[in-house]
């Protein structure tokens, strides 16, 4: 059975858009988690200067709309002589925004680790840095993992904002086709299914990671 020209166009565009979406989401998710862990640790254990810096970062990126952040990165930075490609601007914006939220999950998890864990390590001669890296973070990450996963799922959906800085991903690609054929209902329903599939895949991967990291005493299996 041959698809109508509309559907042929639609799926070609959406598949191209999907690849771009994945290219946006994967580095932003990984970068967001890594920067989020660092920022969360600094906000919890840093000295006053670094703690203030990291708190300001989190306050700004959690406190302003992502759209504004993307506008500043893409349309604002050229005023300072910094030109980012649409793709780079989007990835940078997503990473920084996602990391700001991740840092809050990580901070909460770090604060939930009993002080005895810290004392136990200190009593054995661990430095503060070693204690955080080898004892506190591995435990905190296991406690934060559900929140972090939630943020990644959210990231998958707000990655659609990339099209406002002219980076044509899933939503942008679909919107072009929809406008061309004036068939919004079908197009956006199908885009919705694409996102649903992406999120389902992410949930499966996150579950796998959760299983991998499972340790008796950290949640139920």
């Amino acid at each position: 059975m041959e698809l109508s020209p509309f559907y042929q166009d639609l799926f070609t565009s959406l598949n191209r858009g999907l690849l771009m979406s994945i290219a946006l989401i994967v580095p932003s998710a990984v970068g967001g988690v890594l920067i989020g862990i660092t920022a969360g640790a600094v906000r919890t254990y840093g000295n006053r200067f670094f703690r203030t810096m990291a708190n300001c970062y989190a306050a700004i990126f959690r406190g302003t709309p992502l759209v504004i952040q993307l506008f500043v990165l893409y349309f604002g930075l050229p005023n300072l002589g910094i030109y980012l490609t649409p793709y780079l601007a989007a990835v940078l914006g997503f990473t920084l925004c996602s990391a700001a939220y991740q840092s809050e999950y990580v901070r909460g998890a770090l604060l939930s680790i009993k002080s005895g864990q810290y004392l136990g390590a200190q009593a054995l001669g661990f430095t503060t840095f070693q204690t955080i890296v080898w004892i506190i973070l591995p435990q905190a990450f296991r406690r934060a993992i559900h929140g972090c996963g939630n943020e990644i799922i959210y990231l998958i959906k707000y990655s659609s904002l990339a099209f406002i800085v002219t980076c044509i991903e899933l939503t942008g690609a679909g919107k072009t086709v929809a406008t061309e054929y004036f068939r919004f209902t079908e197009v956006f329903s199908i885009i919705g299914l694409y996102y649903l599939a992406l999120v389902s895949l992410a949930i499966i991967i996150l579950k796998k990671i959760e299983h991998r990291l499972f340790i008796p005493g950290f949640g139920h299996h």
Partner: peptide, 29 residues
């Protein structure tokens, strides 16, 4: 740090590292 390495401490509530096995708890320090 040197003092703490040479003066061991046993706590009332053990303070084992919850994310490590019995063996891991001893090997990590």
């Amino acid at each position: 740090y040197r003092l703490r390495q040479e003066v061991g401490m046993i706590f009332q509530d053990f303070n084992l590292f919850d994310h490590l096995t019995a063996l891991g708890n001893i090997t990590v320090p």
